[in-house]
Each structure stands twice: as structure tokens, then as C-alpha cells.
Simulated scan of single mutants.
Amino acid sequence: MSERPAAVVCRATTAERLAYVGAAVFVGAFGASMLPSSPAIAVVAGLIAVGVAAMAATGRCAASWIRTSARSSSRAESSTGQDDRPVRVPEKERDIDG
């Protein structure tokens, strides 16, 4: 697998960033409209709007945030000296029926 950082793998174009801004405004407006009747939904929608706005500001995709955390944990495991190569199991041990 490539050793490029996640920011390079998933970089939003200008059109995508504008779409993120539109989505953030839409979700934020939805959250504001839900505030009087359902504050819990309004808070969740507000948090999602903030996350989408952060994606628009940084140009990074949400998937790259997830890949970055997964990649950093795999790097920590490999730095402990554990071998990541698959282990071959003899045919005899692979047979479920015995």
C-alpha cells in the first residue's frame, strides 16, 4: 500500500468545497429550525454542520480523517516489531472437519 499521507489521497476540489459549504448551510439551517421543538436533534445537526464546514475549510474528506487514525494505529503496531505478513497455515490445520 502507498505510504502517502491521507491528505494527499483525499483532497477536495473547489467545486466539492463549495458543495460542502452549501451542505453545511443547509444542515445548519435545519438544526436552527429544529431548536424550538427538538433541541437534541438541533445540537446533532449543528455538530454535523460544523464538521461539514471544517471539511469545506480544510479541503479534506471525512474519509481521510478516518484513514489517518486507522493508519496511525497500524503504524504504532508495526513499530512494536510485530510482523504484518500473513501466516501460512498447513492444509491439515485448515480443514474444519478434522
Rank of each mutant, 00 (worst) to 15 (best):
A32M: 12
E91H: 01
R4K: 15
A19Q: 08
V52C: 04
P5T: 12
G51H: 04
M34P: 02
R94N: 03
G28A: 11
R17M: 14
A57P: 01
E93P: 00
D83L: 00
A70H: 06
P36C: 07
A7D: 08
S74M: 07
A32K: 14
A63M: 11
P90V: 00
A6W: 06
R85N: 07
E93W: 03
A19Y: 05
A24N: 14
R17V: 08
L35Y: 15
A7C: 04
T68G: 02
A63H: 13
D83F: 00
P5C: 13
T58Q: 04
P36W: 11
Q82S: 01
S69M: 05
P39H: 04
A29E: 14
M55E: 14
S2T: 15
V43Y: 03
A53R: 05
V87W: 00
C61W: 07
M1P: 15
S64A: 15
R88A: 10
P5F: 12
G22T: 06
T68C: 01
A56W: 02
V43L: 09
C61V: 02
T80V: 02
R60L: 07
R88S: 08
A12C: 10
S74T: 04
D95P: 00
D97A: 10
D84R: 09
S78N: 02
V21A: 15
A23R: 08
G28F: 13
E93G: 00
V44D: 14
R85V: 00
L47P: 02
E16Y: 02
K92G: 05
A49I: 03
A53D: 12
P39C: 01
A70M: 07
E77N: 04
R17N: 03
G98D: 13
A32E: 12
A42R: 11
M34T: 06
P36A: 09
G28T: 06
R4F: 12
R4T: 15
V9W: 07
G22C: 09
A54I: 04
D84G: 14
S64N: 04
S37L: 03
T80H: 02
S33T: 14
E77S: 06
C61E: 03
A70L: 13
A23E: 15
S69V: 09
R75G: 06
R67N: 10
A15T: 09
G59Y: 00
I66M: 07
I41N: 14
A6K: 05
S38K: 13
S69F: 05
S37V: 05
S79T: 03
I96T: 09
S37K: 08
R17P: 05
V87A: 00
A49D: 06
G59A: 01
F30P: 01
V87N: 00
A45H: 02
A40S: 12
A15Q: 06
E93A: 14
I41H: 15
L47D: 11
R11W: 05
G22N: 12
A23N: 11
A6C: 14
G22A: 12
E93Q: 10
A70D: 08
T14D: 13
I41P: 01
G98V: 03
S74C: 05
V50A: 14
S72N: 10
I66K: 13
A42N: 11
M34L: 11
G28W: 12
K92T: 10
